[in-house]
Amino acid sequence: MTTVAVLIDHRDGAVTRPSLEALTLARSLGTPVAVWLGESPSADAAAQLGEYGATEVRVVDVADARLAASAAAALGAASDDADVIVVISTFVTKEIVTRLAMTTGAGVVVDAAGAEIVDGKVEALQTVFAATWNVRTRIDADKAIIGVRPNTTQATPADSAGAGTIIDVSVDLPETRERVVSVAPVEQSDGTPLAEAPVVVSGGRGTGGDYTLVSELADLLGGAVGASRDATDEGWISHEHMVGQTGTTVTPALYVACGISGAVHHRGGMQASGTIVAINMDPDAPIFEIADFGVVGSLFDVIPQTIERIKERRGA
């Protein structure tokens, strides 16, 4: 049976939801083992990984794996026997797997929306060109690495749980030329990070810089707040909220674009979302070309009414 190593993403000791999605995907490819970089996980975290199918939790207690080469060495030490490695696709993990592939000869597909085994080889699915094309890529190399996007697999516990046995793995980190001079953590807004959120409500230039309504709708729908580049450039909201080709790519079940024109750079980062809603005063705004539900109107009129109606129907 194929061993599938899954690099677990964790925050404050808790396993993130995309990690559970990745484990769920891994189960369909073979037998998952979890790889945990950092201080040993709590018993609860290990149990949860087992519940989602991990037979082992391989812990590499590296104090500092911020540099790609270090993290790649750690992941490599814990995934020696794996034919398939699954990570959650981010700018950081793309660098880690590139380094790992350079030393192992693995074939890599990142930003995948899914994967399956066909005739003994991994085939990965992607949506490209601002989600206008579907591409299926076979990994021919003996070792396959897949970077999956959050929200592309429904996380479900395994029918029969894995043991989730903690195993310590040691590694000698390589010498690196690079030196991390300083790290300033980014203040995380409450709730789910943008990339993982099941709902994203974004505001653009049309908000005029006032995110009150956008935030209120996001809260009501249990989602995160996004923004266009123009809004982050204006300094209305921090860069971490930017959705798009050079910002964060999101694939939530629901994306609501408020006062966003829908430039191709923006669409590239959200067009694969489940349902797309657009509120824009300009009936010719390109965002309407991809909106399942478009409202030609002012967000300042529309959003308050939407919020009120949802509250009313929930109350009823």
Binding site: L67, T90, E178, V181, A184, V186, L194, H239
Partner: peptide
Amino acid sequence: HLADAHETVSA
């Protein structure tokens, strides 16, 4: 600027 941190790196 990463999602979770701003880093300064030298080499």
